[in-house]
Design a protein around this nucleic acid. Structure first.
Length: 634
DNA sequence: GTGCGGGGCGCG
DNA sequence: AAAGCGCGCCCCGCAC
């Protein structure tokens, strides 16, 4: 495949800049102006195309090639939205750098990555053209030439990064396809925002908060900050004769207020004998979550943007960062995390406001309990693997063994539901070395929030439950020890490499079956356990955590391999261009024409059930949903 | 004003 | 010895 590297220079000033707004707002702003773009085709030297000539460039540039940029989410959005240019393959050297060098570098800027790879340094001409339009810059030949040299140099650096990481064998070819698929979620938006749903939702959310606040005001609150500020809320509680619950911060080791909705102390105050205290706690909790309000506002403001040639099309680009997580999961971008939209709690308005366009449907496929399946399979916990294979109800089965009497979640009886919930909490949490204290807190908080009534285990029962899990699934608890005694020493370079399933533990990293690596840089043993660095951060490592990282990384590979196969088969067998439009870890979301939805869904489910080549005995399963909106499809 | 860390909360 | 993990955004409080 042919490749071209692009590097845009665009107008900015103190108010109108990427520092003040997100790329979607910046690119669609009336003030947007491309001063020009450096283009490097193949091995040729880069050439500069001035702003007024860009329409012609993109009219003529070969679309049947790969286009490489550093931060493709930005540059490719300009190409697509401003010039209607969408190439066959989009490559982002920022994403490649994140996947290959994120552990080593504190910054992944073009300059930082290029310097690290020994490719040269980036200039600083861009600082001199602040507030200058194309006409102004071009009117000053020296400055203009300086900018052109700067842009051409950037294009060379970007090409160099691609060359080193791709041809150097650090970034596998299949990951280029993953990257392209993810970039298109933003660059080729399909979701249409329903403003009416959002506007109504915003009104309801604000009214609800208003009500809670006015009740709190009658009880001594002095505005919103009485609820939002820990110190002010504490004194409010004291006014009502309640000594605030305290806890020790796991980060600082200092004592702090236990005011989170998962803190047992606060859960108790929710049932306090004094209704005033109950009202204050409810008001605090009702105000602490701002996500419904702020996210709705942000989607509404994006819906108001005007698209070149389309007017107010209400399109919703989905920005995702490739390998945003250490485990190579995606993460959010553009001040917008599309992977944590509220889903539970009934209303679901934000998800329902993400509509498929006219005559289309949203189709979601998600991988069922994929991490729990991977834990069982990696550990060789064959009874559990077999139970998954036979599509048995694992949560009820575990609860049955734990309680010593039959439990069946499918009987809609409250006792069965509650006991099945205990089983679910155990299966999903205890595989990663969750301790009894946190298990106890998690069970109580989650059951209260999800079932409506709290399941309270005393200390003894919580300990016994955790012990029971570790004994029943002795291969899983054994795997934690194996990872501590064998895998971590290999990662630290103390021993020769070792393998577990499809994973090879070498010094500094785990080689995954995708060809990408799970990095554990500067791994060393300290007085409080193993430590490694990732970019700016220092993290801890132990058996349960390593197992979790492995399962997350493998689940990510399985889900994306399936997404790529789904797109491919739809193209080959149905002659349809079907594209993923959103990805939420174990869930791939497509937008499809309603006439082809059934055929696409069949293929999607087949591929989501297909076992990986590296794991023919790993039983996986999936579910599909569809509807006019993302909310309806779940 | 801006930056940063802690705590909180949303999702998986 | 024992330790769920992975994200991003919001708000607060504090330092500069």
């Amino acid at each position: 495949m042919k490749f071209a590297v692009l590097d845009f220079e665009t107008y900015y000033d103190d108010q109108y800049s990427l520092r003040k707004m997100t790329p979607v707002e910046y690119i669609l702003d009336p003030r947007f102006e491309a001063i020009g773009c450096s283009v490097k085709e193949g091995q040729q030297l880069p050439y500069w195309v001035a702003g007024p000539d860009l329409a012609k460039l993109f009219n003529e540039l070969d679309r049947d090639q790969g286009v490489i940029t550093h931060n493709a989410l930005f540059d490719m959005s300009i190409c697509a939205w401003r010039y209607g240019f969408i190439p066959k393959l989009m490559v982002d050297t920022l994403g490649m750098s994140r996947a290959c060098l994120g552990h080593k570098l504190k910054s992944l800027s073009l300059n930082s990555v290029a310097s690290h790879l020994g490719l040269g340094v980036k200039g600083d001409a861009v600082g001199k053209v602040k507030g200058m339009s194309y006409a102004a810059i071009a009117g000053s030949p020296t400055l203009y030439q300086e900018l052109i040299t700067y842009a051409n140099n950037d294009a060379e650096l970007c090409a160099g990064i691609f060359h080193k990481l791709f041809y150097g064998g650090h970034f596998p070819v299949a990951e280029l396809a993953v990257m392209d698929m993810i970039l298109r979620c933003a660059v080729e938006p399909s979701f249409v925002i329903d403003q009416n749903i959002l506007a109504q939702h915003l009104g309801e959310v604000r009214a609800k908060k208003e009500t809670l606040l006015s009740q709190a005001m009658l009880l001594g609150a002095d505005g919103k900050s009485s609820l939002m500020s820990n110190e002010q809320f504490a004194s409010l509680l004291r006014q009502h004769g309640v000594e605030p619950p305290m806890k020790v911060s796991p980060i600082t080791g200092k004592t702090t207020y236990a005011f989170a909705k998962t803190d047992l102390g606060l859960l108790d105050l929710q049932e306090h004998e004094n209704p005033a205290v109950q009202a204050l706690v409810a008001a605090r909790l009702g105000h602490k979550s701002t996500i419904e309000e702020t996210r709705t506002e942000r989607l509404l403001s994006i819906a108001n943007l005007s698209w070149p040639g389309l007017g107010q099309a209400r399109l919703m680009p989905v920005p995702l960062k490739v390998s945003g997580a250490h485990t190579h999961r995606m993460s959010g971008d553009w001040k917008l995390n599309m992977q944590n939209l509220p889903a539970r709690g009934g209303n679901n308005a934000i998800r329902r406001a993400l509509m498929a366009p006219q005559d289309h449907e949203v189709l979601t496929v998600d991988s069922s309990q994929i991490e729990a399946r991977l834990v069982a399979w990696l550990a060789g916990q064959d009874d559990l693997v077999l139970a998954f294979e036979n599509k048995e109800d694992i949560y009820s089965q575990f609860a049955t063994d734990l309680m010593g009497h039959p439990v069946n979640r499918k009987l809609k009886d409250p006792v069965h539901i509650a006991e099945g919930f205990v089983g679910k909490t155990c299966i999903l949490g205890l595989g990663y070395m969750l301790g009894w204290k946190k298990f106890q807190a998690r069970l109580e908080a989650d059951s209260k929030n999800q079932l409506g009534n709290a399941i309270v285990f005393d200390d003894e029962r919580a300990k016994n439950t955790v012990d029971f899990y570790r004994r029943k699934y002795s291969k899983i608890s054994g795997l934690w020890r194996w990872l501590e005694n064998n895998a971590i020493p290999a990662l630290a370079g103390f021993t020769d490499p070792v393998t577990l399933g499809p994973c090879l533990f070498e010094e500094g990293s785990v080689l995954l079956p995708s060809g990408l690596r799970l990095w554990y840089d500067n791994l060393e043993r300290t007085s409080d356990g193993w430590k490694f660095t990732y970019g700016r951060e220092t993290k801890y490592l132990y058996g349960g955590k390593l197992l979790e990282n492995l399962c997350q990384a493998l689940a990510r590979i399985i889900t994306f391999d399936a997404a790529l196969r789904i797109q491919k088969r739809c193209s080959v067998e149905l002659d349809l261009i079907v594209r993923m439009k959103l990805q939420v870890h174990d869930e791939n979301v497509f937008v499809v024409h309603k006439n082809s939805r059934i055929a696409v869904e069949k293929i999607a489910l087949e591929e989501m059930h297909r076992r990986p080549e590296w794991g023919p005995t790993l039983p996986i399963a999936a579910e599909a949903g569809h509807g006019p909106s993302y909310g309806d499809a779940k």
